[in-house]
Simulated assay, not measured.
Amino acid sequence: MNSKQRSFLKGIAMTTEPLFQIGKAALTPELTKAVNETLEKHELLKISVLQNCLEDPKEMAARLAARTKSEVVQVIGKKIVLYRQAKEEKHRKIVLPRD
């Protein structure tokens, strides 16, 4: 993903509400599975990390991206934004700009 595409996705994420919250349990297998399924339907996903979570949001974003085969668009404070293009054509909603 190049910087133009990342910037495009950040713009979309600005108006998106977080769909998941990560609390003190951090990254559970159930959360990872739910994020994976949601990425297939929405492609772009915003996650909020709650104050009671002791792990670093950047580290969690990297691990979650690796587990779901997605890309970290950005981590600002306690907000994580992930992107993965949907495998099925009918679920593709986001068209990334070319170079």
Rank of each mutant, 00 (worst) to 15 (best):
R92G: 07
L31F: 04
A66K: 13
I47Q: 02
K69W: 00
Q5M: 03
L9C: 07
K69P: 08
G77A: 02
L45P: 04
M1H: 14
P57R: 10
L82H: 05
I94N: 04
V75D: 01
A61E: 12
I47E: 02
I80A: 01
L50F: 00
L82Y: 01
R67K: 11
Q21N: 13
A62H: 07
M60R: 07
M14P: 05
K78P: 02
S70L: 07
V73G: 03
K69Y: 13
F20W: 04
N2H: 15
K10D: 00
E37R: 15
N36T: 14
G23P: 11
Q51F: 13
S3E: 09
P18E: 02
L19D: 05
K10H: 01
T15C: 00
V81D: 06
E88L: 15
T16R: 05
L64C: 03
A66Q: 12
L54F: 08
P29R: 05
I12H: 04
M14Q: 05
H91Y: 15
P97A: 13
I76S: 09
V75M: 02
K93M: 13
I94A: 03
Q51V: 08
N2E: 08
K79A: 00
A34G: 03
M1K: 08
K90E: 13
P18C: 00
K10G: 01
R84M: 11
G23T: 03
M14F: 06
P18W: 01
Q51N: 07
A26R: 07
T68A: 08
R63G: 11
Q21K: 09
T38L: 09
T38V: 05
H42M: 15
L96Q: 00
K78C: 06
K69Q: 07
Q21S: 13
V75L: 03
S3V: 15
I12E: 01
K87D: 15
E59N: 08
K24Q: 12
T15N: 00
V75S: 06
T15K: 00
V35C: 00
E88Y: 12
R98P: 13
L31V: 10
V72R: 01
L50R: 15
R63I: 08
K33C: 11
E71L: 11
G23K: 04
I47N: 00
R92F: 06
L27P: 04
L50Q: 04
D99K: 10
G77W: 07
L82F: 03
L54T: 14
P18K: 01
E55N: 13
Q85S: 07
G11Q: 02
D99E: 10
L39W: 01
K46L: 00
A66F: 05
K4A: 12
I94R: 02
V75R: 01
K41H: 09
M60P: 04
A65V: 09
D99M: 03
E89G: 05
N52C: 06
E88F: 08
D99V: 11
E17C: 12
G23C: 10
K24P: 13
K78S: 10
R63K: 09
K24N: 11
L50K: 12
